[in-house]
Design a protein around this nucleic acid. Sequence first.
DNA 1: GTATTGTCGACCTTTCCGGTCAACATCGTA
DNA 2: TACGATGTTGACCGGAAAGGTCGACAATAC
Lengths: 148, 148
Amino acid sequence: MLLSTKGDYGVRAIIDLAKHEGEGPVQRAEIARRRQIPEAYLDHLLAQLRRDGFIRSTRGPAGGHQLAKPADEICLLHLLESLEGSLAPMQCLENDDPEDEAICGQGWVWQEIYDDMRAKLAATSLSDLASHEREHERERATAARYVI
Amino acid sequence: MLLSTKGDYGVRAIIDLAKHEGEGPVQRAEIARRRQIPEAYLDHLLAQLRRDGFIRSTRGPAGGHQLAKPADEICLLHLLESLEGSLAPMQCLENDDPEDEAICGQGWVWQEIYDDMRAKLAATSLSDLASHEREHERERATAARYVI
DNA sequence: GTATTGTCGACCTTTCCGGTCAACATCGTA
DNA sequence: TACGATGTTGACCGGAAAGGTCGACAATAC
Ligand code: FES
Ligand code: FES
């Protein structure tokens, strides 16, 4: 039932880009360090995000990666479907084969769960994620002050 | 993101038992045939369900498997957690390691989705599944009549 | 032209899924 | 009590996919 690391890593990476929106390209090495992703592996994830038009990349010195559209126009659902392929928890939910129902009898439960999940992912934009993370950082910072 | 076949097959099997509640033991071969599960593989799933007290098995001629408690006291959540282990879509949701949040920043979304999913699964009992399937059969039967 | 960055595809290793098999335990029945 | 039907268990196995690495190449800034 686990999401593969592609989804997790890929979203981490693009959150990083969202947090540096408007500051020019961010380099692969930087993302990899901050987000704890193997650099060589990150290549593939960025490539996928580029193919689907979420990011733009520039080569050469001072090159890097940046969002191709505003962070609030990118939702988590599209991101994950780009990175992971389908998110369906059961195969039968995609190739709607009606004869399965007689054999299995639980498809309807999963269909509901799947719909709820997709709705929630579609309602979460990249800017939501970024601002949520900023807020979390602020909380940690004030907490640290108290300790000091 | 897919559930493994263990969960699907295992639930199929116990739905079958629920539909024959009170009719004595149901044999492995019968379940396997009706639910399209490899017989030898089904063994392992039944073993797991037995270990966790969902079913009782009797050996010898006229033996077989049956529910160990009423169908409406068995919920889909417990069944699936028995068969699949954890259902968490991300590893970090179990070993609540607070330092992940700074690196990843999407854990909260998945936590919400996970909670919703568990709630829905916990609210669905085995008797819900069985009656849902019976209803579906009835619909198909009347539909078939119209065709004839 | 050289250093710096990204781009792409081949490759490799490990894990796990889905499944089989053989040996054994238990029970009903003749 | 012997036999056959059934369930019980753990070892085993092939293939696919996950997760990751590497090397050759392309573009750009200076
Ligand atoms: S075959 Fe679709 S949920 Fe089982
Ligand atoms: S590490 Fe938990 S969602 Fe990414």
